[in-house]
């Protein structure tokens, strides 16, 4: 009896990885999916947090892809190990703080470890030569194969015909003629192939698979690093960068202002970690203060909180300033006029 050949596909939730897995399944290979959670993934958080997005049906695109394919999906938490990729990328960043090349090498390396531990034969990715400026170039695809240690066991079914034959082809596990030779930025061949397979309603992320490709997000992360004087972060830090309005009125502290009920509720979970300010005479946001704050700073933070409350035009607004240790004080403040909030305070 011939041995069942097994492959693991990196499933991001986008169209290319969905197609790549399917192309290999067509050739009788047993495929399972693997999805890496870095903490920066776009998946769902803002839907979960922001009330206005809650009405939209939320789905995890990687799980959706697995369901379409009828394969198992293993979701792997790489939050801690991934920090080094974001903080010290050997190959540098893309146009924002996205370390795409190092990221790909890291993920393929993790997939290599996984296939070795689970007795699988090769790895599938949805990469296409020339598709992305940093990680999917003709000169960087071999770097990913080499530096991840996957080498010949890495198959890119969508552009395999443009690349040297891999082990799966030389061993006869895959017929090269039935793989594809896509290249460049055009999405047309993928859309046509999706149609051929009967896939509809697939996700087409514009910038990439994570928040690190987002300019505004990268600015907030850079601000966090520069003001702390160290390029470190934990999961809470990077979650909080996705939520609320961020203002830095002084170098030593910033405010995170909930923009609506869902965000306020999410920020509630952090009241034991940060000084937090809530208007009590009027309805308004929950505000977290991240950093060090003296008496004047608290007063300024309270006036800004009042500014973002329903009492913004009132003579006076009462706010409650709560310390993580449980101490609470009530302050009566004049809301800061909007013209006194410099644009530069908004991170």
């Amino acid at each position: 009896m011939t041995r069942q050949i097994k492959a693991v596909a990196l499933i991001s939730g986008g169209l290319d990885s969905l197609l790549a897995a399917r192309v290999v399944m067509e050739q009788g290979v047993h495929v399972e999916g693997i999805n890496f959670y870095t903490g920066f993934c776009v998946e769902g958080h803002t839907h979960a947090i922001r009330k206005k997005d809650r009405d939209r049906p939320k789905r995890n695109n990687a799980l959706w892809s697995a369901e379409q394919l009828g394969i198992k999906l293993h979701i792997v938490d790489i939050i801690d190990e991934y920090k080094d990729v974001v903080i010290n990328p050997k190959h540098g960043y893309g146009s924002n703080l996205n370390p795409c090349l190092d990221c790909k090498i890291f993920m393929v390396n993790k997939a290599r470890e996984w296939i070795e531990a689970n007795g699988f034969d090769f790895i599938i990715t949805g990469e296409v030569v020339g598709q992305r400026p940093m990680s999917q170039r003709k000169d960087t695809l071999p770097v990913i194969a080499r530096d991840s240690g996957a080498g010949e066991r890495l198959v890119r079914p969508l552009c395999a015909q443009n690349l040297p034959a891999t082990l799966a082809e030389t061993e006869g596990w895959l017929d090269r003629e039935k793989l594809y030779g896509f290249n460049g930025r055009s999405r047309k061949p993928q859309i046509a192939l999706a149609r051929q397979f009967g896939f509809e309603d697939f996700a087409q992320p514009a910038g990439g698979c994570c928040f690190l490709t987002d300019k505004q997000y990268s600015v907030k992360l850079a601000d966090l690093w520069s003001t702390r004087g160290t390029r470190e972060y934990d999961l809470d830090d990077i979650m909080l960068l996705k939520v609320g309005r961020h203002l830095r009125p002084r170098p030593h502290f910033k405010l995170i202002v909930g923009r609506e009920e869902g965000e306020n509720r999410f920020l509630e979970g952090y009241r034991k970690r940060f000084i937090n300010i809530i208007p009590t005479s009027h309805s308004g946001p929950l505000v977290l203060l991240d950093g060090e704050a003296g008496v004047d700073d608290i007063e300024l933070a309270a006036r800004l909180t009042a500014r973002f409350s329903q009492g913004r035009d009132a003579q006076q607004v009462t706010v409650s300033v709560n310390r993580p240790e449980g101490e609470t004080e009530s302050l009566e403040v004049v809301p800061i006029p909007s013209e006194e909030i410099p644009e530069a305070w908004y991170v």
């Binding site: 839907h47 979960a48 049906p57 789905r59 995890n60 799980l63 697995a66 369901e67």
Partner: peptide, 16 residues
């Protein structure tokens, strides 16, 4: 506490 689990845990269970 994340309402997303109502979709995601069943989806994960279905594929496994």
């Amino acid at each position: 506490t994340d309402p997303g689990v109502v979709h995601d845990i069943p989806a994960w269970c279905r594929v496994h």
